[in-house]
């Protein structure tokens, strides 16, 4: 399968990328592991690709002012192997290892995954649970937005056509914070049929996010309120499962019906809560 012909520009810096983003009918190429398959199937036919894969400054993973800063161009494998991530955000290490397969993890990037906003992608749930900030840059300058405000619908985000994600910032969690990513993977694609990311702080505050469940990843405030500040035990887990997915339009497709996916999501919430139980 061969994509429709397109123009191609490789950029070396973020500034060059933004300058190149002024035209219409173009797409940013990061790792390309969602975009190229879509182009091969001719579901996507951009007139021009701006290849940001050579921007080395976007690949950094570092600690800065009490935050972990993950460059948008860091691959899933870069994140999976990084000691800073393993130390402070162990559920990113755990979750990255479940994305696609090793070959995909070697090319796919966190920025690409967030911008693409596949409803069953893994990073959206993890960055939501980590209460991350998404850093973007465009012709109008730089802006930061909370992950909770970033995803707006099916493959839809607040990103403007002439903006790119430059980094994901996460406040370093206090010692004693526990986190997990629990996924029921579609056996062929490894995308989430339902997955739950949980970050539980030492004071009992609990962030809970789902992916693969609705048309975009989301924080489940009902479940969070039911468990936050309480000991994790049978009763509180039961209460969180009951409170979860209120007013959520749960997806139904040929892999999982709506009632099955709803049930699965709650089971994975339970698994996640048991995994962060101290």
């Amino acid at each position: 399968m061969i994509p429709v012909a397109f123009d191609y520009e490789k950029v070396k810096t973020v500034e060059e990328a933004i300058a190149a983003l002024s035209g219409d009918d173009l797409k940013i190429l990061a790792g390309g592991h969602s975009l190229i398959p879509a182009m091969k199937l001719r579901l996507s036919r951009p007139g021009k690709l701006i290849d940001i894969g050579g921007i080395t400054a976007l690949k950094d993973i570092k600690e800065e002012d009490g935050e972990i800063v993950i460059g948008a161009g860091a691959t899933h494998a870069d994140i999976m192997y990084h000691n800073l991530i393993r130390t402070h955000l162990p559920f990113f290490t755990e979750g990255a290892a479940t994305i696609g397969d090793m070959q995909v993890r070697n090319w796919g990037t966190i920025g690409g995954s967030l911008a693409h906003a596949d409803p069953a992608a893994d990073w959206p749930a993890m960055v939501l649970a980590a209460d991350a900030t998404i850093e973007m840059q465009g012709v109008k300058g730089r802006r930061n937005i909370k992950a909770t405000e970033f995803f707006t619908g099916l493959f839809a985000t607040v990103l403007e056509p002439n903006e790119l994600i430059t980094a994901v910032r996460i406040a370093i969690p206090p010692d004693g914070t526990k986190s997990t990513y629990q996924k029921f993977a579609q056996p062929a694609s490894r995308f989430a049929l339902a997955a739950c990311a949980v970050m539980r702080f030492p004071d009992g505050r609990t962030n809970i996010a789902f992916t693969g469940v609705g048309d975009h990843a989301f924080r489940d405030t009902g479940a969070e309120q039911a468990i936050s500040g309480k000991a994790i035990d049978d009763a509180s887990v039961e209460a969180a499962m009951l409170a979860a997915l209120q007013n959520v339009d749960v997806m139904s497709d040929h892999y999982a019906s709506e009632p099955y996916r709803r049930h699965l999501s709650k089971v994975y919430l339970k698994k996640a809560l048991m995994a962060v139980k101290s």
């Binding site: 399968m1 390309g32 190229i36 398959p37 494998a77 397969d101 070959q103 694609s189």
Partner: peptide, 26 residues
């Protein structure tokens, strides 16, 4: 030809890569 099966796996800069899902220009 859909990055599922891995028959096209090679190394690019030492990393296993499914080269049916990479443009030569990359």
């Amino acid at each position: 030809d859909t990055s599922s099966c891995g028959a096209c796996t090679i190394h690019v800069n030492g990393k296993a890569t499914k080269c049916c899902t990479l443009l030569a220009v990359q």
